[in-house]
Design a protein around this nucleic acid. Structure first.
Length: 260
DNA sequence: TTAGGGTTATTC
DNA sequence: GAATAACCCTAA
């Protein structure tokens, strides 16, 4: 090969990631021709995008070179149907991990294990880089496309249930496009900017978690009060039962004021 | 047009 | 020399 290797720049990688998020993995030609990414990816072919995405996926999964995973491709066309390309995708690299200490999912000694939902959500937040947090639909979309995990219908319905805005109930593709357009505002121009964005995302996420924890504490207190009231009612009922069983006659007023 | 295997260059 | 990245080839 005469031409020297053309290394991928961070801008190109970022454009590829956003392109995959917007159009989905496998739509390499669409990504390459997308006006949003074509200026950056003009020197790359759709094949290049595919190869780079494959490299990113394998390196991020901790599996090293794809050569170690190679499986003989069945030659017979009547062999078992090939799995969906999406199912073969592996998690992409994490910008948050590059800019900040690893999350709990990466503390696991075995990287090939399924990451926890929390870690996937955190990764999605980090990747999406939306300063005020991200919509549930956007996060779900990210996890389904970029992380190649499928959310169950029940979970997806639960996640979408609180959203009353009909504009948020469009098809996945529309949501994906919307999410990607939002990300277009934040191009990772430099590592410092990327780190700042990741830090801002972390802060927003921490605040959201703090708020959630506070709500949980209030719920615990409320349940505690209910338990106390229930206990006192039980005592009252027991006392009433005893006195009635002894033949005493009690008025409602007495019961209300417990003046037996 | 894409997926997947193969080949070669680069880096350590 | 091994690991990785970029590029090439081919079947579907």
């Amino acid at each position: 090969m005469g031409a020297p290797k053309q290394k991928w720049t961070s801008e190109e990688e970022e454009a590829l990631r956003r392109g995959v998020l917007k159009h989905g993995a496998g739509k390499w030609r669409t990504i390459q021709k997308d006006p949003e990414f074509s200026p950056v990816l003009s020197s790359r072919s759709n094949i290049d995008l595919k190869d780079k995405w494959r490299n990113l996926s394998f390196s991020a999964s901790g599996l090293g070179s794809r050569d170690k995973q190679r499986v003989p491709r069945p030659k017979a066309p009547s062999s078992s149907p090939s799995p969906s390309p999406q199912l073969l995708l592996l998690p992409a690299t994490n910008n948050v991990a590059e800019a900040s200490p690893p999350e709990d999912c990466e503390k696991s000694p075995q990287d090939d294990k399924t990451p926890s939902p929390n870690s996937m959500i955190l990764e999605a937040l980090g990747e999406l880089k939306e300063p005020n947090g991200s919509e549930v639909t956007t996060i779900c979309n990210f996890i389904e496309i970029d992380k190649s995990y499928k959310l169950t219908d029940s979970y997806a319905k639960r996640a979408l249930a609180p959203m009353k805005d009909p504009s948020l109930k469009k098809k996945d593709s529309a949501k994906s496009s919307k999410a990607a357009k939002g990300q277009g505002l934040f191009t990772a121009a430099s590592p410092a900017l990327g780190a700042a964005e990741a830090a801002a995302t972390k802060v927003a996420d921490a605040e959201a978690k703090s708020h959630l924890a506070n709500e949980h504490m209030m719920e615990v207190e409320r349940i505690g009060k209910m338990a106390e009231e229930t206990e006192s009612l039980l005592e009252l009922a027991s006392e009433l039962y005893e006195r009635c069983s002894r033949g005493e006659v009690l008025t409602i007023l007495q019961v209300a004021h417990r003046e037996f």
